[in-house]
Amino acid sequence: MRKTTLFTLDTPYREPLSICAAEFGAPDAPRSIAVVGSTRGNEIQQTFICAQLIERLSAAEERGLLAQDARILVIPSANPFSMNIGERFWPVDHTDINRMFPGYDAGETTQRIAAGLFEAVKDCDFGISLGSYYLPGDFLTHVRVTHANAISDESLQLADAFGFPYVVSRTPSSFDTTTLNYNWQVWNTHAFTVLAKETDTINQRTATYVQNGILRFMNAMGFVQSRSMGGSLAVHIDESDLVDVRSESAGGFFLRNVESGERVVEGQTLAVVADGFDGHVRETLRAPVTGYVFFSHTAPLINQYTIAFKLVPEVA
């Protein structure tokens, strides 16, 4: 393993921002894969997953288990600058680096950061980013493919190799066209976004679960010999198949009865919204279908018109 610096940026009053990668294999190897942990400062779990992945890949390298004709890049954080001061976005102008791809090396600061990262990973055959969703909450760990172009169909099939329970296909909105995942596909990289359950807290058990999935994928694609435990037969769903449960009539305290991953039956109470003044139940959120909790709002407070749950219907 070599620790390499992919990009640096001078900053006023602080040390330069450095985007560092763990590099395995020859720089000019004919096959390559990149794993990007965080582009936002609160993606702590994503950064932790990559840090431990580097440790596991280093051990595999010492034992001669990495492919000789392949290069692996693992980049725990593309935005340590925000992480070190507890900010999610770029602390100066609150722009989101993951809305700046493919970047522009003569443009604004976050465009330059995105360009610096993208230049290092854009020619990889496979790209895995560990993102977080724009709505705060917990997800059932899954892999998603943004359906950008023709390569996406093949990527959807390859995504089974992670062994996560769900592979989600997403039709991109206009604001998706500046993400890392989308632009990887424009450059003909098979691109996958892995959404781990947590974002701004570390859960060692689920971190290992995600690493196992990434190593299963690397094993299937011939980058590393790994017999990661477990793995599921993936169910493919389109994001539009998910059934939203929203707080329609009230805001207040959010009192949740179920966790992401649980099976729920039609009519089951998922949560209640209690009045912020006297605590009485203002709204009961029930499952409209029998299925599995795919996403759950986790904050203790909830606004009216908030998507509190996303369910995968058990029967399509």
């Binding site: 009230a250 805001g251 207040g252 305290f253 912020g276 407070l301 909830i302 606004n303 009216q304």
Partner: peptide
């Protein structure tokens, strides 16, 4: 109009 958690509406 949307109700916020504690005694207020977003208008």
């Amino acid at each position: 109009s949307a109700e916020l958690p504690v005694g207020e509406h977003l208008l």
